Amino acid sequence: MTDTAVKANDISVLEISGITKTFDDKVVLDGVSLTVARGQTVCLLGPSGSGKSTLLRCVNWLERPDQGTVLLCGERIGMRKGGVVPMGNAELARLRMRMGTVFQHFNLWPHLTVLQNIIEAPVHVQKRRRDEVIAEAEALLENVGLADKRDAFPSRLSGGQKQRVGIARALAMKPELLLFDEPTSALDPELVGEVIAVMKSLSQAGSTMLVVTHEMGFARETADKVVLMDGGRIVEQGDPEQFFGNPRTERARQFLQRYVSA
């Protein structure tokens, strides 16, 4: 496939092909290939250190892969001119605007209110009308159950509330792809459910999502495709019913025995 964008409806939203990444001579990703179709929720599972979060960071080019390609709706991320010349910052920023990332540790600006956190990028990066963006942000806050926190600062929010603001902030950019990097791992157990509920509603509404998670229940109930990584490779992938009910590989059986039975 060329670097030229093609009609989005004709292809997968995300195509990852042959991604490799090493740190200090340690292979973290070893030829990973994966597709995410429009409207799919794909969950990346695996033990700590298996390469899941690094793969997500390669998708939005926070980490530059050593080899391989990442295509968003047919347009190559990070490289241009036949994959030889790196993209400039402005060109890369334009592509990143089409992806929304929800981080493990929220990454909210502490000096801005909830509403200001959500409207900052659409107003100053996308150059959209402030009144229009505010109206959309208020609707998003309503959708994630935080309309009453509009003028609160992050320091006044629980972890679950901060993560729901993070989701609303990502949605405010109207992304074609949502990336979730272990969005519940920094939360107290009693707060996990409120974030999972928002993610389930997004999936049911047809959002395209790539989710790194340890929440087996979410993957089993919500994912269209489950991908197990280990040692920087994909060792098994399939629909949740097949993966959880009849795993094909011994590694998947070992993983499920440890993490689902725990």
Rank of each mutant, 00 (worst) to 15 (best):
N246M: 13
A8N: 05
D181K: 12
E194Y: 12
A90T: 10
S53F: 11
P154D: 12
K225G: 02
A5P: 00
L71Y: 14
T208I: 15
A93D: 07
R164T: 10
E15K: 15
F23A: 05
A135H: 13
R76W: 00
V28N: 08
E120Q: 10
G39V: 10
T213D: 15
G159Q: 02
L178H: 05
W109F: 15
L140E: 02
L29E: 11
R253T: 13
N60A: 14
P110T: 13
R38V: 13
D66V: 12
R76I: 05
L171N: 00
S155P: 03
Q237K: 09
V226I: 06
T69H: 14
K81L: 09
P247M: 10
F153A: 10
G82V: 06
Q161P: 14
G82L: 09
L115S: 11
V13K: 15
V165W: 01
D10A: 13
P47K: 06
E236T: 12
L34H: 07
A152L: 11
T2E: 10
G83K: 02
A147S: 01
K225E: 08
M216Y: 14
M1V: 11
I119C: 03
G193C: 13
N9S: 04
V13R: 15
G193E: 01
T20G: 06
L29V: 03
R57K: 05
L256E: 14
L45R: 11
R164G: 00
P183A: 05
K200E: 15
V165C: 12
L55C: 12
G100P: 10
Q116C: 04
R128F: 09
V85K: 05
D25S: 15
D3Q: 15
D10G: 12
S203I: 05
A252Q: 02
V227R: 15
T101C: 12
L228W: 09
L92R: 14
D230P: 10
S155F: 06
I19W: 02
V125G: 02
V102Q: 06
V198G: 12
L140A: 09
G78V: 12
A168D: 00
V32H: 13
E221Q: 02
T208S: 15
V85R: 04
E132Y: 11
A93F: 04
L202S: 03
H111G: 03
M216A: 03
L56C: 10
R233Q: 14
N89V: 04
T20Q: 01
I134N: 09
Q204K: 04
V114F: 02
R258S: 03
W109S: 14
K127I: 00
S201K: 07
E142W: 09
S17W: 00
S53D: 07
R220M: 14
R38F: 07
V85Y: 07
I167M: 10
M199P: 04
L157Q: 12
A219I: 00
F243Y: 02
P154A: 03
E91P: 09
Q40E: 15
M199G: 06
G145R: 13
S50D: 03
R253A: 11
V32E: 01
S53L: 06
V227E: 00
S33N: 12
V198H: 09
D24H: 13
K174A: 05
G232S: 00
A205D: 08
K174H: 06
V28Y: 03
